[in-house]
Design a protein around this nucleic acid. Structure first.
Lengths: 219, 219
DNA sequence: TTGACCGGTGTACGCCGTACACCTATGGTG
DNA sequence: CACCATAGGTGTACGGCGTACACCGGTCAA
């Protein structure tokens, strides 16, 4: 019987999928070769028959989730095509919160990442942008102007609006402008339930701003 | 004599500055409590009299470099003020390549980061943007649309243009659009010596695009 | 029948962060 | 002046990490 179980003996793919699942469930920091091995009912060193080392495991995980982005494109011009592609990538990566951090801790991009990038570039070239312009555009899409993400404001995940307003009032003396902004955001209850701040909306706002900017480039 | 040396006995500040310096020199991955202690001529556990644990050390390091951004602002309207502030932050952080990654691996923002953010927000509020608009804007500045940075193209640090063109030709079959773009970038030799791609120029291009976008918001 | 090879095992090494007990000099207080 | 609390540096030890290396049992081609 255990022989029968051994008959499906741990593809590289099974290792990668298990790693992704474990990282999703317990966080990327808790993903160790030992934990992963235990999850698969195997001794740690067995993994090394399928991945060279932990870095290659991480690369493989990235490739797995990036490859899942898919290649659907709506055909109505470059702008909607790019938008749908990027939003699709976002929803795919949102399922694996560790992915962003892992992706840019890697030194060399993985093939799936390059393929995704290539497809985006293709959309801009097909849209009539020059290779140089496309280069600038890709940089603009890949650069973060500030060093930190919007996660700043998730102080307490499900805090009530009242508690949030109270927190704002607390930091008002030290960071008055921040407090003003936070209060305004907590105010407007038209957004989704969460932190008084609809991340999806914010993302699309920024994306549209950039796309419109690209649109106005001389061509 | 060694008593005399012990008379300057390891401020928390000296620990943080040494940590920053060590991370700059050997990379953030090589920064361990043990290495840092050795650098300071002290036993590892001595550090724990000055920082609670390694996470707090990292927070302190972030605070140190972010506090060094400074608060200079040119007075000619919000746009130039924001631009100079952000470019200043960029040059400060470029001196510590590990900082970006450490900053967004932290769960809670440190005081200096909040202060910097507060000052940026203040510039937009003073520029006539509503708190809500400012909120959107800060998100736009803090979000990276693609999951990867521009470091993608640093395959080989000091590769000759010829080598780079050769690399592009190699990947052309698999990633044709990427190759087109890379060739165009390597082409134009007007940029700085480096990788055929002037990161500073790309950054300012993206920044100006966003700032102009903000400028056109109804107000 | 044999022997190569593939995949899983067991042991061991050197690194990491850090808990805990200890030691020693210092400086304020009786 | 005697005393002792305290701050800062030490030494040892533990559990976890990635992984090198030797091993070993099946499977299958020759």
């Amino acid at each position: 019987m255990d022989v029968a179980e051994r008959r499906v003996p741990l593809n590289r793919d099974r290792v990668l999928r298990a790693a992704v699942e474990l990282a999703d469930r317990t966080g990327i920091d808790a993903l160790s070769m030992r934990n992963l091995a235990q999850e698969l009912g195997v001794v740690p060193m067995a993994l090394y028959k399928h991945v060279a080392n932990k870095d290659e495991l991480l690369d493989g995980m990235v490739d797995t989730v990036v490859a899942a982005i898919g290649t659907s494109v709506a055909g109505d011009g470059w702008k909607t095509a790019v938008r749908s592609r990027i939003l699709g990538a976002r929803t795919a990566l949102l399922r694996h919160p560790w992915a962003w951090r892992v992706i840019d801790s890697r030194t060399a991009p993985t093939p799936a990442v390059l393929a995704y990038l290539d497809s985006i570039i293709g959309l801009f070239l097909a849209g009539g942008f020059s290779p140089d312009q496309t280069h600038h555009i890709v940089h603009a899409l890949g650069t973060r102007m500030l060093g930190y993400t919007q996660e700043l404001f998730n102080d307490s995940p499900a805090s009530s609006p009242a508690a949030q307003r109270e927190a704002a009032r607390l930091m008002a003396p030290a960071f008055p402008n921040l407090a003003i902004m936070a209060l305004a955001a907590a105010h407007d209850e038209s957004s989704v339930v969460g932190s008084g701040c609809d991340d999806q909306f914010e993302f699309e706002f920024a994306l549209n701003l950039l796309l419109d900017g690209f649109d106005h480039l001389p061509r």
